[in-house]
Amino acid sequence: MLKITKPVWVFLFFALGLTLAFPLFGEPFYIELLTNIMIIAIFAMSLDLLVGFTGLVSLGHAAFFGIGAYCLAIFFGQSDQFSLWAALPVCLTGAALAAVIIGLISIRTSGVYFIMLTLAFAQMFYYFFFESKHFNGDDGIFMLAKPEVKLGSLQLMDLGNEVTFYYFTLGIMVAVFLFLIMIIRAPFGQVITGICVNEQRVRSLGYATQRYKFVSFVIAGTLAGLAGFLEAAHSGFITPSYLSWHESGAILVVLILGGLGTLYGPIIGAVVLVLLEDFLPDLTDHWKVLLGGIIILIVLFLPNGVSSLSGKLFRRKIFTASKPQR
């Protein structure tokens, strides 16, 4: 059950205000960094729908991110001008199709099998792009241009401009956030949250839980594709490493860092992880040891993530106590 309390809303609006105002005084480097954070936040929110609200732990979510990115590179990478209105639907359809295929097979399983199946399928796509000479293998693909946003002949936005892209990403992130809140508060969301808590009971109430899980999987995959599209359009360079299982693991880390099943947690987690990845390498060459240590500490001592710190201050936990661990 999604509960966003008043203090959290206040905090979110405050943060949104800051983010809106940031390009007025921020340096270009930090504007780009924030754009990255927001893209990762969208990616993590899509996974939150699956892991936090449906209770399906996926270790292959990067596949959809990468496929969204690759669709942009494959179909539009060689053209020097193309429209957003063509590119976005193609990328979303590509990611959704992949989610349908993987979902049809893996939804039938649960628990450990589900985790390993999603992982294995993501690896399949990873190796497909890694080894295919057609798509440049592990050298990746460079994009020639950014998508154009036009209405008729009128240019609405210039995505080549870093600040414009920043606001574009921010707009999409807010839209995804509101869209997920809408879904989760809708009857569909009630059912999947029920599945997360106790699938047997939901099934005994007469719901075809498999279908709900499947739809949730496809929505999550499509939104991850959206994040991949943004990443590809932003960096202009796509490699198979977008699909690697390290990415899938890292995005789970973002989710746990922030807090599962909160929707705003993934945003916080994205901020924390990107800043850590930016800051730790300055300390030592072997910063991954530190990152691993921090992750272990969080898993052991703060299993509900950073956002639970605010929860401990402002509200009492109602539902987490009765939730069975899976």
Partner: peptide, 23 residues
Amino acid sequence: YVYKKGHLHQVLLTYALILIFDE
């Protein structure tokens, strides 16, 4: 410590272990 904590935490903990061992 994660026997009873569920698969998600096991995945994360062992993922962190990989980072550490590889490094």
